[in-house]
Design a protein around this nucleic acid. Structure first.
Length: 561
RNA sequence: CUGCCCGUAGCACAGCUGGAUAAUGCAUCAGACUCCGACUCUGAAGAUCGAGGGUUCGAAUCCCCCCGGGCAGGCCA
């Protein structure tokens, strides 16, 4: 447990004990202690920790909050808590202040933990599957996938840091209607090379990639597939182009530093009979009915807004069935404790349906969590870049990564929480100045490395600090900085619990900010060897924290820049 | 029509299990290097937290209603 958490826990115990003592002494009535919170005050001049216990127990104790606070204060023993004193303020807040031992303990903890600092075993023993991107293999990935990639991969990393066993997975939609559409698109483009007057259907894929595939296929096979059965032609085209596309997805995502534990093909669910099995199971349980020649699932009986079709009157399953089968596979067949999907917000309506089906199948649907991601707008020269998916002119992930550094992309896409629409400023992402938050954070790291290098050259060796050395760190900038460092574990945990990695990009930005302030206020190399050592230790600790977070997000932590 | 999400300074956004002066960055203005990297820092100015009502000792936060924006509601995916 981290120093910060330990301190809060100790304080909570001390407060409870003080209340019990006060009650025993008759200073407070014998009533049950209501739940209270210990938090970090918004205005830190009030204290390092604040408890609202006196205010929330005003009713139970039939006394004014400040009176209660005074009674608690009188019986409070802060020995061994890393806290020095307690003040009563405002309407009855009890404010507490760290002692020097707290700050020393934080720095020692970071030094001892090193690359592990910030991690916890909160999720130990739990297996989680994070599915993200899962882009349609019929075409290139777009900026939405870029956001999903950065978010999903970082979320997985955050969960790992919180102790979960995490697997990353990409679901390949290599079956169903869009593959038919893919086939049609390829077919038309191929035939167009040999015949005139063939029009692309409106709803086909109009991108250049389809034209290229058709051309390359024609270069390889010539007109051999012009006069064969359409089925054979379509199959040959798909068998040629789809593997190339999937390889492309893998290659592009790898370039984006995303590596999956598994690429799961939808087609395997059809081949294994898992898709048919879902319909069979739901039917056997009596949750389906026939209407107009189609098989419907009684989703409205399981919390969804309306029933929906599982098997169309033409005998083919709708897209939801493989999806149900896929999630059934995750949670039942493979037995993950939790399945997390990172999806575009336009899928929100479909989540209750999926959950309804899982519930009907006897699966606890709360084991499926969906992180919905809002739209991305690219901004250039202060204006939104128009995106048009239909015309095939959408900006692809590859184009984006050609324009901006991977570090910037991964950082920027984790700057905002998933559920808020995001303006991605292309100019800012390329900008190599302090305005660019990635550079700002990386610069702090490089700056520390530079200080450490300079010290080495000066012949000043970094040694273990004593408590006396650490006690010299008393400047406000030093105290603020160490305090921030102490919170990394909490931030990781919160990010994991809320599925919100963006907390950590903001946190690491704050750390960098406080470091720069410290740097400007306090000279590391100074006349006092002990103080120099203590500040070096602080620099090391900051480097560890920044490095750990950047590494977690697969962003480089440069030694110099 | 129904459901979900969003609305906080000029811009982009934190804060939302109710708490003490609504945080941060950009932009604006004024400052700081003969000194560990100025890719930095200090200061100023800028917000009726979309509107109204309610609950509460206390509301940006919870509830209701309204306005505005986005998305979804196919035998498409």
């Amino acid at each position: 447990m981290s120093t910060a958490n330990q301190t809060v826990n100790n304080l909570r115990k001390a407060i409870v004990r003080a209340i019990e003592q006060a009650q025993a002494a008759g200073a407070l009535p014998a009533a049950e202690i209501p739940d209270f919170v210990i938090e970090i005050p918004a205005d830190r001049s009030h204290g390092d920790l604040a408890a609202n216990v006196a205010m929330v127990s005003a009713r139970a104790f039939h006394a004014a909050p400040r009176k209660i606070a005074e009674a608690i204060q009188q019986h409070l023993m802060l020995e061994g808590t890393n806290l020095s004193r307690c003040e009563i303020a405002g309407p009855g807040f009890m404010n507490f202040f760290y002692d020097a031992g707290f700050y020393a303990a934080v720095l020692k903890e970071i030094k001892a933990a090193g690359e592990q600092y910030g991690q916890s075993d909160y999720g130990a023993g739990k297996r989680v599957l994070v599915e993200f991107v899962s882009a349609n293999p019929t075409g290139p990935m777009h900026v939405g996938n870029a956001r999903g990639g950065a978010l999903g991969d970082s979320l997985a990393a955050v969960l790992q840091a919180a102790g979960y066993h995490v697997d990353r997975e990409f679901y390949i939609n290599d079956a169903g209607n869009q593959i038919e559409k893919f086939a049609t698109s390829l077919e038309v483009r191929y035939l167009q090379l040999f015949q005139e007057g063939i029009e692309m259907p409106e709803d086909a894929y109009h991108g250049q990639d389809i034209i290229d595939h058709a051309k390359n296929f024609a270069d390889k096979c010539g007109d051999k597939y012009v006069n064969v059965r359409p089925e054979a032609r379509r199959e040959a085209l798909v068998n040629y182009a789809l593997p190339l596309n999937i390889e492309g997805l893998k290659r592009d995502l790898l370039k984006y530093r995303i590596q999956y534990d598994r690429w799961f093909r939808e087609s395997t669910l059809h081949e294994s009979g898992a898709v048919a099995d879902i319909v069979r199971q739901l039917t056997e349980k009596g949750h389906t009915y026939e209407q107009d020649g189609a098989v419907w699932f009684r989703a409205s009986a399981f919390g969804a807004d309306k029933d929906f079709v599982l098997v169309r009157s033409n005998g083919l399953p709708t897209y939801v069935v493989p999806d149900i089968a896929y999630h059934y596979d995750k949670l039942v067949t493979r037995g993950y404790d939790k399945a997390i999907d990172v999806l575009g917000a336009d899928h929100h309506g479909y989540v209750p349906r999926l959950k309804a089906a899982l519930t009907a199948l006897g699966v606890d649907a709360s084991r499926l969590d969906v992180v919905l991601m809002q739209m991305v707008f690219l901004v250039k020269d202060g204006e939104r870049v128009k995106l048009s998916k239909r015309s095939g002119k959408a900006i692809t992930l590859v184009t984006l990564l050609d324009e901006i550094p991977i570090d910037a992309a991964r950082f920027f896409f984790n700057l905002r929480e998933a559920n808020s629409p995001f303006e991605f400023d292309l100019d800012l992402a390329i900008d190599k100045s302090s305005q660019n938050p990635v550079y700002y954070v990386q610069y702090a790291h490089a700056r520390i490395c530079n200080i450490l290098r300079n010290m080495m050259e000066e012949g000043i060796a970094v040694r273990d600090c004593t408590d006396e050395d650490y006690a010299l760190l008393t400047a406000p900038e030093e105290i603020e900085l160490i305090h921030k460092l102490s919170l990394m574990g909490d931030e990781v945990l919160m990010a994991a619990k809320e599925y919100d990695p963006s907390r950590l990009t903001r946190y690491v930005y704050d750390v960098a900010n406080l470091f720069h302030k410290f740097y400007n206020a306090c000279r590391v190399m100074n006349d006092d060897p002990s103080l120099t050592q203590a500040r070096l230790a602080l620099c090391q600790a900051v480097k560890t924290v920044i490095g750990n977070i950047l590494t977690m997000f697969k962003i480089t932590a440069p030694e110099s820049m």
